[in-house]
Write a protein that binds this DNA or RNA. Structure first.
Lengths: 107, 107
DNA sequence: TTATTAAGATACCATTTGGTATCATGTCAA
DNA sequence: TTGACATGATACCAAATGGTATCTTAATAA
C-alpha cells in the first residue's frame, strides 16, 4: 500500500546503493563520477540510481549533458517513520532526527 | 563485508517481513499464529522468518513442538548504526534510540 | 562541422526471491 | 500406542534483481 516506504526500504537493501547514498552524502556526483568508484559498468550504476530515485532518496538535475545526482534527505523519512513505530516501545527520540531532516528540507 | 548490516537491511526490504516485525513487537508468536495473519502458506511464512532470523531481528525458542518467534530489538542496531552515519550531517539524536535498545537488551 | 563525451534505452543473461506443494519428523493427547 | 498436530525440509516455479553489451541521442569542444 505505502509505495514510498516500500521503495525506500527496497532502495536501501542493496550494499552498492547504500554506498552510493554515503558517497552522495559527501558530494553531488554525475553518473560517470559515481561509476569511477565502483567495479561495474555505468549501466549498472544507472540502474541503481533509478532504484534510489524511485525510493525518493536522490534527485537528478540535468546540467548540460550531465546529470547531477543529489541526495534527498527527505526520502529517508518513510524509513524513519517506520522505525518510529518501535520508538513507542523503546524510546521516543527518533522523532527528533525526523524533525532535523524536516528542518534541513526547508533550508 | 558487513553481513549483519546487509542481512538486516535485506530482512526489512520485504513488506511481509516488516509486518511480521510489527506483529512480533506486540507479542511473541508461533509460526502457525503468524500464518493466520497472512494470506500465504506456512512454508512461505517460515521462509520469511528464516530471513528475519538471518538478519538478527528475531530469535526462536523451541517449546515442545512449538517454536516461539520473538523480536530481537538488538538486531536493529546495525540499521540504526548505518543511519547514524547521516546523523553526523543532520542531527545527533539517533544515538539515543540506539542507547535505548542497548538498555532494553540488558533488562 | 565533426569528433568526442555523457547519458538514456533496450535486449539479454544468471541468480535470487517469494511463493507453492509435498513429504518427513518430533511431540502431545486420547 | 496411535492419531493428530506443529514444524522442518526439499523440490519446483514464475518473477524480480543485478549485471553486461550494444545502440541511440544530445551536448560540448576542436
Amino acid at each position: 500500500m505505502d509505495h514510498q516506504t516500500q521503495n525506500a526500504f527496497r532502495a536501501l537493501a542493496d550494499p552498492t546503493r547504500r554506498d552510493i547514498v554515503r558517497i552522495l552524502a559527501g558530494q553531488d556526483m554525475t553518473i560517470a563520477q559515481l561509476t569511477d568508484r565502483f567495479d561495474m559498468t555505468r549501466a549498472a550504476v544507472k540502474k541503481h540510481l533509478t532504484v534510489l530515485s524511485d525510493g525518493g532518496l536522490i534527485s537528478v538535475e540535468a546540467r548540460g549533458r550531465e546529470r547531477i545526482n543529489r541526495l534527498e534527505p527527505a526520502g529517508m523519512t518513510p524509513v524513519l517513520d517506520w522505525l518510529s513505530y518501535f520508538d513507542r516501545f523503546w524510546d521516543d527520540r527518533l522523532a527528533h532526527l525526523k524533525d532535523a531532516i524536516e528542518r534541513k528540507r526547508h533550508d
